[in-house]
């Protein structure tokens, strides 16, 4: 019965990634290799991030929100952006269109993030007898994270790979990318600084991820037009 619950939560956490891969043209163009490479880059980035966090951050005894520490954490969070940059520009991909490349990278990125951050807690926690909503919420969070990762990858591909984009849109692209990249810090502030509960935070994440997805979609479409 509790294995059943684990199964449910796993579907919610990892299912959308698989669905995304099989439903979109990604599967037709066989971009799995790109996703795997992006996932490996994510692992490397996570390691560098851990080292940085361990080096520069003090361990706070209480759960209070310390602005200076959080700023530092946000800066370290930008290592993610660097990793994504590496994944998008430096990796030699097979000849796939930019359109599919960012999706594949974002998908691999989000999947690696889910596996790394959510699989172990799920395996330990959701199989236990005690029922909590936490693991279902965590699955929803993984969904929001997938959308955010793909949005960030889309914005990144706009920034770094597309040369001829409308000049007026450039500041908007950078602003959106900044917002998406600082999302972890924003949620951490909501959780610690404002004392939001987990369901509220997840709701906020879902909402913002959808908004950001729509914005970046529109931006991408707007950049596509002149070139086509």
């Amino acid at each position: 019965m509790t294995v059943f619950h684990f199964f449910n939560c796993a579907i919610l956490t990892f299912g959308p990634h698989a669905v995304y891969y099989s439903a979109t043209p990604l599967s037709e163009y066989d971009t799995l290799g790109t996703s795997v490479k992006a996932a490996l880059v994510y692992l490397g980035t996570a390691l560098v991030k851990l080292v940085c966090l361990a080096t520069f951050l003090k361990v706070s005894e209480n759960d209070s929100f310390d602005p200076y520490q959080e700023l530092l954490k946000a800066l370290i969070g930008f290592i993610d952006v660097a990793g994504l940059y590496f994944a998008l520009t430096q990796l030699t991909h097979r000849n796939i269109s930019q359109n599919h490349k960012f999706q594949a990278v974002g998908l691999g990125w989000a999947f690696a993030d889910s596996v790394l951050h959510r699989l172990a807690p799920l395996w330990v926690g959701a199989r236990g007898l005690e029922f909590t909503w936490d693991y279902i919420l965590q699955g929803l969070e993984a969904n929001a994270n997938l959308v955010l990762s793909i949005s960030l990858a889309a914005l990144g591909s706009l920034m770094w790979l597309r040369k001829n984009k409308p000049k007026t849109l450039i500041p908007i692209i950078y602003a959106c990318a900044g917002i998406v990249a600082t999302m972890p810090s924003i949620t951490s502030y909501l959780k610690r600084g404002l004392g939001w509960h987990f369901p509220e935070v997840v709701g906020f994440e879902l909402f913002t991820s959808l908004v950001m997805a729509i914005i970046s979609w529109q931006l991408f479409a707007a950049c596509q037009r002149p070139s086509s």
Binding site: H5, N8, L129, F131
Partner: peptide, 14 residues
């Protein structure tokens, strides 16, 4: 003491 969900709940969730 565990608070548990029933099988029915898990089925619905599925």
């Amino acid at each position: 003491i565990y608070q548990v969900a029933s099988v029915t709940f898990d089925l619905l969730l599925l």
